[in-house]
Nucleic acid binder design. Sequence first.
DNA 1: TTTAGCACTCATATATTGACAATGCTAACA
DNA 2: TGTTAGCATTGTCAATATATGAGTGCTAAA
Lengths: 330, 330
Amino acid sequence: MLNDRQTKLLKIIVEDYVKTARPVSSKAICDILNCSSATIRNEMSYLEETGLLEKTHISSGRVPSEKGYRYYVDHILEPRELNGEDMLKLQTIVNNSSLMLDDYITKSMEIVSEMTNLTAIVLGKSSKDNCVSKVEVVPINEHNLIAIVITDKGHVEHKNLTIKENVSINDIKQTVDLINKMIIGTQLNEVGKVLEYEVKPIIAKYVKQHEVLYNAFYTAFTDFAKESVTMTGRKNMLMQPEFNNADKIRDIISKFEDKEIVDKIEENDNGINIYIGSETEFDDDVTIVKMKYEANGEEGTIALVGPKRMEYDKVIALLEYIKENMKEGK
Amino acid sequence: MLNDRQTKLLKIIVEDYVKTARPVSSKAICDILNCSSATIRNEMSYLEETGLLEKTHISSGRVPSEKGYRYYVDHILEPRELNGEDMLKLQTIVNNSSLMLDDYITKSMEIVSEMTNLTAIVLGKSSKDNCVSKVEVVPINEHNLIAIVITDKGHVEHKNLTIKENVSINDIKQTVDLINKMIIGTQLNEVGKVLEYEVKPIIAKYVKQHEVLYNAFYTAFTDFAKESVTMTGRKNMLMQPEFNNADKIRDIISKFEDKEIVDKIEENDNGINIYIGSETEFDDDVTIVKMKYEANGEEGTIALVGPKRMEYDKVIALLEYIKENMKEGK
DNA sequence: TTTAGCACTCATATATTGACAATGCTAACA
DNA sequence: TGTTAGCATTGTCAATATATGAGTGCTAAA
């Protein structure tokens, strides 16, 4: 455990480094803590032994280590009110009452990304556990149909179906009716099974072109559980000095394009979770701050990605502000 | 105009540089053209005078200039058949008959991006001139509705509407019926006007909560004309040596995130258009190859973005292959 | 018109240097 | 026992020097 002065020292170093991106020297601190630089150095070297600080080279100033940030986030960080200026910027969106939840979130995160120079990620809806509440099929022309599925939580998915062979409108209608009967109330990610084991045997009996129809609907429905991801402000984040080398940027851009890695961001408990450096799947210099939300029956995850060296208190305040304001009747 | 040997020389230099990314020396060429390096140098310096070649520094080999690439593309480039291996990779997608046009294009472009190390952009549908063919409204709960619009060309757009005040189901039904009557057949980008000047006055007379309803529908419909953009393989492109400096990558990533610039890619004539270096809005090292397509009544633009130093013949062959195969009954 | 030969130029890589910014350590001090 | 002054030490950074090699331009001869 750290004593009072050590805690203060760590706090100062983290916050100074976050601001300036330069290693913090003992000399710079002695004014603030009212003691000589030598004393600071003694304390610094203790914090280094503990693994909370690091040097970039033997005679450099100190920089918070991953463990240092973690300690700062867990024990030192004080909750902070959003400052007036930032609040004002978000207010226009909060007050725009015609905005649906999704748009409110996306737009807020766009602004937050600009304010913080972090990449904002909005992970859609996790509609896997939505239940089908209505299926509708609209014919476009001879060979093309549109299947529309609406879930109980208000998500809509649609897909165009192409049916090469000639299939009678009646057969289509029968199939849709059957599907409507059998899969309403089913969770989206269960629909595939129900189609295969319950619907298929029945339409095989009663519908002529059953195979063509079954295949078309099967692929349509099993595609539905997909998630949506939006990402804004990659550029903002990449301007940070920790990413001023081409290979690092390439690596991070690649990871952003990797569906697997981005999808994993979703797994988390409620509230705000912070993953620092090696705790992320991105890069040792990266921190991910993510928050699950649930409002209006919809749920999803929003996340901010950026350098470890970020303004944790501000980021938390912003996310909480977004969450607060989505409760109030969006 | 270039003589035969000069044309050959330019062709060799372009193609060699495309392959190796290194300035081409006179010595490397003399074997191919059966003459000494000094002769080649004479010809090279002529091509440099003409502005078709450049040196990276005074004693370096030659590199095609922007004008050189342009000349190559306009006069030297020979149409090339897709090689068997590449064709095979695309075949699986072409043969997947359950794929709709949109998915066929997106998936093909993903593969093309990997094969060429270029960024693939699919610019959606330009559905502005689609006509509304059906409007449907599905209630989710007291305050939320889903409006679904289907166009004659088979696009589906949907939007959640929130209606804060209490509005009777009957009023909603009346409004929807009216909308259905009045806007079917209207182009998507005209719907706003029709709503304002034709629908609004009528519902103002007959529907109680007309303002709330009108506003909800108005914002819903006017949002519909939006376009979709998908982009894959940024990472592939950024691995190219011309982008091995952090600032250049940042700049290009920024441009990719700039809606204005990306949208502009759409403006082009039919066929394949090639924009080299300063002709693009991206960077002097960048080339954009884009192609408008029209099939099934849908139209859109696909584009490949990468370094000027790209395999133009291969890229063209790939795009043409995609276009060919979308005609055959997707 | 082509070519061999040579001087020249520049990129790239590596080493050298001095100024500077911090540190660690030690010994003295309160 | 905790704090501090002073100094040697160690590294970064930027500027400068040095060597090497690849490739050119030019000239004179074939």
